[in-house]
């Protein structure tokens, strides 16, 4: 049974007497080390297998057009479905809110008439700025990095998140002055 030499051997390995034998340090030692290493490599490789190299999701960075495409005083929802962001333009400039409720991760709606973001799951409410003021949400909506690309278009980078409670909203990349 060449395929299963490990089974009786594993029972042997459990005995302390084996450890003292010289054979363990020579042939059997090498054998077990190599076998264990191969198994470990297999386990790591299997883990690696679970992390895909290519994603079929929308990219984490995208160009959202020129600043002039966004009207002052509006919450723009054109990239809400495709990229999960609200683009808000006020008097000073533009910021990008992550469309994920800070309570349990649902997608809030923008209610134009009530001038607020409202989460449909548990009723958290946020001001236009993203600050929470009602419902269970513990903290404001997060903002994404927003900069101007070389060609003058807005570049939104979802890998960088700015949280208000950490004082990150003062970072220059969280807000695009126009």
């Amino acid at each position: 049974m060449a395929a299963a030499p490990g089974k009786p051997a594993s029972a042997q390995a459990a005995t302390p007497s084996v450890m003292t034998r010289r054979g363990f340090l020579s042939t059997l030692g090498v054998a077990w080390t190599a076998f264990a290493a191969a198994c470990a490599a297999g386990a790591v490789a299997t883990t690696r297998f679970m992390f895909p190299n290519v994603l079929f999701e929308p990219p984490q960075q995208f160009k959202a057009g020129l600043p002039a495409d966004f009207q002052t005083g509006t919450v723009d929802q054109r990239y809400k479905e495709s990229f999960g962001v609200f683009i808000v333009r006020d008097e000073q400039g533009i910021y990008v809110l992550r469309a994920v409720c800070t309570h349990l991760g649902c997608t809030p709606n923008w209610l134009e008439a009530e001038n607020k973001f409202k989460c449909p799951c548990h009723g958290s409410g946020f001001y236009r700025s993203g600050i929470n003021y009602e419902g269970p949400a513990p903290r404001p909506l997060e903002r994404y990095r927003i900069v101007l690309a070389d060609d003058g278009q807005i570049l939104i980078d979802k890998t960088k998140i700015f949280a208000q409670e950490k004082g990150e909203w003062s970072s220059p990349d969280s807000f695009l002055k126009v």
């Binding site: 490789a45 690696r48 297998f49 992390f51 895909p52 190299n53 290519v54």
Partner: peptide, 8 residues
């Protein structure tokens, strides 16, 4: 894709 990009 298994040939082109999937890890292992």
């Amino acid at each position: 894709d298994l040939r082109e990009q999937v890890p292992l």
